[in-house]
Design a protein around this nucleic acid. Structure first.
Length: 470
RNA sequence: UGGGGUGUAGCUCAAUUGGCAGAGCGCGCGGCUGUUAACCGCGAGGUUGCAGGUUCGAUUCCUGCCGCCCCAGCCA
């Protein structure tokens, strides 16, 4: 089975403007923002520049307070941006001045004032206050200060940590990547298929979470939607799944979560080479979208974007056997047949300016459903996609075994319960077809693109061995 | 699960050979009309992770346990 070399191009026209904050229409039904003190329009902070000279209201949370006797500064965050407001005692009278004195970090407020361009203000614009209303007060013990904190403390206060600019930037990039993935597949005619989270024992065999399931015994939280995706590919041609997945492995590393999000495309009549082309196109598009639309967030994260700008097809392809030879030359003690260790992966990708494919691993190192390599039956038709800068595996993919007898034999050889795989084997009985797919780890991809040291910051509320709350 | 590290004020961290428990930030009070993690003065704030041992005396040395971090394995 060969694939066309022609690659469909994605539509370049953005679906939404490439800004970090969408313009929000004025809630006043009368039309354009009014500059009247009687009816100040509510404005989102990124839009303030369009209201210079007008009286507007900004609603948000206090992030910082500074007072200098008769003049005061407060910084407010509305979720889309931050702006400094200035309060002069002589301008507002004692009542509002007293209200300022009672403000605390993270109190929610409505600030009304005149928008002014001022070089002394962070961001270039500020609000000269005329009125200040406390919407929700905040006790003085808000735990997160504008200073360094330890990771454990921050994770314990994750529900509040999210409010910090860095964390908000990460979540914006994550959302952009998710949207880019949907747009990528939609443009190529893929159908999104949602696969079950509660399953009977099936799929890969390492740690599974279980729960009681009525009279059916134990149900397991899905580790992959792939097998279901294969069934859907025979119905729809090109599909992808996008959802949470669960691993009860006792992994404590910067690359592991017990609950993470995975994108699993499955393509009918695609071989392993087609599969890798799809992977490099997808990863490149994700990076491109973030570079194009989330520059501000990458700046906030101090990401070295030059490390992302070369990410484009084709990615280098290294055969597993060649990789082992290269690694041994560079001093690794790896033996043919073993999976690549983290150190080996780093060594292989060293100096690469884009992700690298390692192809066709030994059969013993990989899952039962991967298709035997006709050119070297010791190996299977598969690939890992290794991100540079030490981020490691962000994708694992393979061509699937489409021969009934071989698949049946592999299930037996692995000691898996054949009964449970009856429906999966059916896919090879009723019109078997060459097909391939892969699993892309969302959190690892976000960590790579954002340049983060640990996946725990790439998801709003990380689930790890020792972390179930908040 | 294995290897390495770490645990002291709300937070981030000091504490000499085993000898009075400290600083910065935050918080309270006072001062200051352009601050940028503002600044200046005063003040409150401690079961030194837990249990035991050595010692005249333990934050410091020893044993056990617990939490967390990093690395490895499993994987995305």
């Amino acid at each position: 089975m060969t694939a066309s070399d022609a690659r469909p191009t994605l539509p370049r026209h953005p679906i939404v403007p490439p800004t970090s904050a969408m313009p929000i229409a004025s809630p006043s039904p009368g039309g354009p923002p009014a500059a009247s003190l009687d009816a100040p329009s509510v404005v989102r902070i990124p839009e303030l520049h369009a209201h210079v000279g007008a009286v507007v209201t900004v609603r948000g949370w206090i992030t910082h307070l500074r007072s200098s006797g008769k003049i005061a500064f407060l910084v407010v965050r509305d979720g889309l941006g931050t702006v400094q407001a200035v309060l002069a005692k002589s301008d507002v009278g004692p009542e509002i001045w007293d209200r300022f004195a009672q403000l605390t970090q993270e109190a929610s407020v409505a600030l009304t004032g005149v928008v002014r361009a001022d070089a002394r203000a962070p961001g270039g614009f500020e609000l000269t206050l005329r009125d200040l209303v406390v919407v929700g007060s905040s006790p003085i013990d808000y735990p997160i200060q504008p200073k360094e904190h330890g990771v454990d403390f921050l994770m314990d206060h994750r529900h509040l940590w999210l409010r910090s600019p860095r964390q908000a930037a990460i979540l914006r990039v994550r959302s952009e990547i998710e949207q880019a993935i949907h747009d990528f597949f939609y443009a190529r005619g893929f159908v999104r298929v949602d696969t079950p989270i509660l399953t009977a024992a099936i799929g890969e065999r390492s740690g599974l979470f279980s729960t009681e399931y009525f009279d059916e015994g134990l149900a397991y939280l899905a580790q992959t939607g792939q097998l279901y995706g294969e069934a859907a590919a025979a119905a729809l041609g090109n599909i992808y799944t996008f959802g949470p997945t669960f691993r009860a492995e006792k992994s404590k590393t910067r690359r592991h979560l017990t609950e993470f999000w995975m994108i699993e495309p499955e393509v009918a009549f695609a071989d392993s080479a087609d599969n890798m082309r799809l992977q490099e196109d997808l990863v490149s598009y994700m990076v491109e979208r973030v570079l194009e639309r989330r520059r501000r967030e990458l700046d906030e994260l101090e990401r070295d974007v030059s490390r992302l700008e070369h990410v484009a097809p084709p990615f280098p392809r290294i055969d597993y056997s060649d990789a082992v030879a290269t690694l041994r030359q560079r001093g690794s003690t790896i033996e043919w047949g073993a999976d690549l260790g983290a150190e080996d992966e780093a060594l292989l990708v060293e100096g690469a300016d884009r992700p690298v494919f390692v192809c066709n691993y030994p059969k013993e190192a990989k899952a039962f459903y991967m298709k035997e390599n006709p050119a070297d039956p010791r190996t299977v038709l598969c690939n890992d996609c290794l991100a540079p800068e030490g981020y490691g595996e962000i994708i694992g993919g393979s061509q699937r075994e489409d021969d009934y007898d071989r698949l049946h034999a592999r299930i037996i050889a692995e000691g898996l319960p054949v009964d449970a795989y009856g429906w999966y084997l059916d896919l090879r009985r009723y019109g078997t077809f060459v097909h391939s797919g892969f699993g892309l780890g969302l959190e690892r991809s976000v960590a790579y693109i954002c340049g983060l040291p640990h996946v725990r910051e790439t998801i709003p509320f990380a689930r790890m061995m020792n972390r179930l709350r908040p």
